[in-house]
Amino acid sequence: MSDILLRIENLRISFGKDDRRVAAVNGVSLEVGSGEVVGLVGESGSGKSLTCRSVIRLLPPGGEMTANRVLFEGVDVQSLDRDALRAHRAHNVGMIFQDPFSCLDPTKRIGEQIAETLRVNVGLDREAAKVQALSLLEDVGISSPERRYLAYPHELSGGMRQRVMIAIAVATKPKLLIADEATTALDVTTQAQILDLIVRLRREIGMSVLLVSHDFGVIAQVCDRVAVMYGGYVVEFGPVADICNRPQHPYTRALLDSIPTIESAGQRIRRDGIPGQPPSLGEIEQGCPFVNRCSYASDACRTLELSMREVGPGHTSACPVTIGSGS
């Protein structure tokens, strides 16, 4: 984890017209080391998907991003012109989404879709692209690749489709793979296989992974470091074991305490959960976004200027309150 592949500094993404602009991402800073798996965890609307999309400047219509820097291998993604951005998206970053069916062309055989990426982005000829596509299908664990090469997306199961998406995403041997809720729609057994595959490819290709998930269980199993997001802010960032075992931000702690576990089967415990609901877009103008649901909150939190403070080695929290160990 010596060199930094991606460094995002003070990223803001907002929507709407001048006088009614609402911020969806508020000053997020993040870094991903080379070969590292970094997780982004948070509930819906916390800004995790937008944050990872900023890496390839792929924002929904109306979204506007500003940042001090979004450095990818030392180059600011914000400064890229059209052609350079296209090359960046094609060669540096692969992305997979929750729903592979809507990302694949339903009228084209899956093998051809993989080969197309290789022809256009790597510059292979037809013959070489087919050979390479077949070997990619094998790499992502699809049995009898010759036969599957000819299949259409609707003929494959959800897990298979996600494998095809991964094959396309890693076809150009990208330096970073972004997986946005890539296993959310899958069965637990299929999910485990896909996570294994991502981890294996990361080792083989030596790529970094930015893994977005709402599921702390998934994050805990594959990530080295994790950023916990809430209301458009990163509220805690650090090594995944530290965050799971010694959460420092009240939100992280409450979130972890809310997650049901199999170990507690039959104990009839009732979890407290988190009272209230996450802030809607534009609801929080200043101060801490978690203030209304936080059991440690004081008046000062409403006007607080959020900043990350060191709470352990490589472990930062946006909350000035020090909560004792335990949990």
Binding site: Q191, F216, C244, T261, E263
Partner: peptide, 12 residues
């Protein structure tokens, strides 16, 4: 196969 944050079964 069930992912858990309390008893992680590391996948690599």
């Amino acid at each position: 196969a069930h992912p858990s944050h309390t008893a992680p079964t590391p996948r690599g």
